[in-house]
Design a protein around this nucleic acid. Sequence first.
DNA 1: ACAGCATTAAT
DNA 2: ATTAAT
DNA 3: CTGT
Length: 971
Amino acid sequence: MDIDAFFKAQDQRMNEPEDDMDEFLERMAKARSSLGPASFDSISFDNTPSNLVPEQSYRESSNLSTRRDLPSVTPKEPTFAFIPSSIVEDAQPVDHPSSPIFVRASPPRHVSIPIRTLPPASIPHLSSDYNLAILKRKESPTKPDKPARKKTAIDASIVPSSPIEVSPEPISKKPPSKKPKPLSKVIRPSVKIPPVPLPETIDLSIDSPIEEPNFSVLVGRFEPEATSTQPQARAKQPKVRAEPPKVGAEQPKVGAEHPKVKAESSTFLQMQERMAQHAKKRDGKLPRRARDSPKVSAPCHGGTISGDESIISVSSSSRPSSPPPIRKLVKASAKPKPKPQPVVQSKPVAPKKGKKKEKIKMYPKDFAQMLLEQPPDPSAKRRQQFLKGMNIFYTGGDMTWASDATRGRMDLIVQHGGNLFPVFDPALVTHIISETSSQGPMLRALGLKKISEVPDHIPIVKWNWVVSGQEGALGPLWDYAAYSTRIPPIDVPLRSGKGKERAVVADRSRVSAMQRKRSIHDSEDEEDDEKQGPQVGPLPSPPSSPRLEARTDGPSSSLVKMEATDDPLAEFYAKARFDRDNAWSRHGEAGEDEDETDIDEPGSDSDDDTAQKPGPPPKSGWTCDSKEAQLKNGPNEFIAKKLEELMHLHRAKPGMDNHWRAYSYTKSLRPIRKHPKPIRSYSEARKIPGVAHKTALKIMEIVETGDLRRIGYENTADVQIRKIFQGIYGVGQQTAYQWYAAGCRSLEDLKAGKGGVTLTPAQKIGIEFYDDINDRMPREEAQALFELIKPIALEIDAKLEVEIMGSYRRGKADCGDIDIMITRCPDDGKTHEGILHYLLKALHEKNIITEDLALPENAFDNEAIYRGLCRLPQFGSRRRRIDFLTVPWKSRGAALLYYTGDDIFNRSMRLKANRLGYSLNQKGLFAGVVRDPRNRTVKTNTGNIVASETEEEIFRMLGVPFQLPHQRVRG
DNA sequence: ACAGCATTAAT
DNA sequence: ATTAAT
DNA sequence: CTGT
């Protein structure tokens, strides 16, 4: 598919007025994707990491875009653009000077959105305001039907970071290079819109986390519509505080009197016109190439580039520049490396049509060259020169024209001190940074036939790597490898966490030396651990690490190696453990052992488990199958700790990516802890279930350096703050994110209602007793409370069954909360209905329960849940979280099982139940559940309860060996 | 390329 | 319909 | 992030 097809799709769309937007978006997406990012010129974005372009850049950057002189298009009514989801991922909130709600994506996704017109009919809920909506397109292959993807999902939480600027006059009149006078006007809900000239593109930032992998964004005017779908969007709006009424007078009215969107036909015409223009440009003006220019070194580009710097409309926020040395280098090196890119005469895409400044199409190489020619930008000095000394060859998605993205990145490379190379010169280039992971384009860009032709010492990393530099230090090269098959050399490790300040310097000799070692390492990966040990160590070995030195000293036994760890006695501990574990598995629980060693990954089996019935499930692999006692204090605990830390960081972040990442760590953690001996090699790590390449690398980093730098990168201020917020009862990722986005940075901010934040009652309590709630209580205290409460309950009805569950029941030494289950045998005709109500009342009176967090819908129901805070009636006692739940007698087993946990264990049980065709919840185990094939979580029919009264029953039904509460620890 | 960790009460 | 919680 |  090419651009034509793309437009065609759009056309088509226009001709079919109403109906499904999704479909359209889908098609567009298809068209777009086949187009390839680089060629899709009209949608570009600047990926500038936020830290590179620190804070105040908000205005700066928005200027940038406005600076671009866009042809003034005066579209009729609503115009919309869709943005590929790929550019908005990982959006992070950033402060905004004037309004807390305007946050910039970070790394700021600077989005230039081409505005295209679409038939209004296809856009639901338009208003008179320019705004954004996300159309979530959740369709997944499994449920590709329309019902699944409702277009209703409009999420107004995305706001233009730079208010859409609309100048009274046609844009074309705007003085082009004019320092973008501050956004002239903000269109707000009320601006009377006489056909307002729209810029062809607008710049905006995305502020809220977007979890949907598939979505599109509409830009347009939202019609205030009291539709049912609207409320959401609206609901969120309030939080989004309007910016100070700059627009003042303009704000009059909205809605009704707003000209209804129509004029489709004219819009369409216009569109056609524009497309025609595009076509013309495409055909007529094939970009003059500088391709013929012999050597790269030759600064002979003047000719090819008609015009001055202004032609470049790099979306990056600063002018290109280049440190002198670079130029030198380039020239010096300029060997005829004339591997001209096999440039497919690809069709230029969505050419910028601007009269004043036309963006000249250039090949990446030419653009790079031009960058080098530019006078250094003084402002560049402000940027961290973390790429200094590196000779970088950058390639975008393909070798067609340098897209805005490519240009911006090249610009950034230069600005951060990198020596940008227009062409790949294996002799000089030290780093290859790519945007693509597909080999084809990459090879074309490099002018090579095989990736393996790239000298080993030259890492090929993704752009992400550069972004990582924003954090203060570049990430480990190997974490950003563009090709998993080609692991870049380990770069100079920054000594433990604090190495942040230090920039990585690419010392080629050292690098290659390391690479050599690396190769050895790799090739011998499978070899004996004893031998391997020494080889692992020598890697980067800056003189700073005694540990490494110890290892490099010579052939050392594993014991010697272990000696290098913090605890001098570690070896003995480990040895002892190793011996014990071995003995244990050999003798004691041979059968279980199998069980132990394999994955806790449920999904794997389902076979033998179903088949098996007698005895302990052989080699199932359900987490819940294997008994688990003490898996702490393993020889790899220090590794697990680090990984766990990282996991928590990921968990604190929004987005599915992080979610699964964290989940993945959860799964690998157990096996790692269980690993009987210290992990010493990459291959050894790889063998551990749940540990694949990435994690193995991390493990090795921990083993070798005692630290995991990724933790530092991940542990940014915003994450920390969000973690604090999430510590508040009733606050999760979303809320924390929103609050952060609203400008809150501390609990005080929240209390003060900064950014328009409003707290729910529960949240207020959560803040008030923040520390208490987040601290765990000693087991004894839980017990004391329980023993205090139980009699009170029994006083109300002596036949109640009162059980303490949760971590207490699992025998933990400290408890995060107290879970008390209440039930009652109904044999005598009575139930515990209403008990909870009276019990709560009594406890309140006795000041044991002090605050309520969540009251049961109906405390008289025999199935209710209460959450609150309690305390021992003693001076100085602290608040403790307490939950009461009443369950029907019949469900007590299932409830006990569920509320005893732990959660991982529960999920595992449930998953297994699912796979076996059951469904397990706190009410019982159900058989014959029919699930909606499109959405497995939807039960068409609830099935029949097959077990619920006792835990044993449920275990048995699921073929899981019964485990005492304390054995159910999985997390 | 894609699924994976479920289920529910409360809001 | 979304969010937090187990 | 892992495994299929």
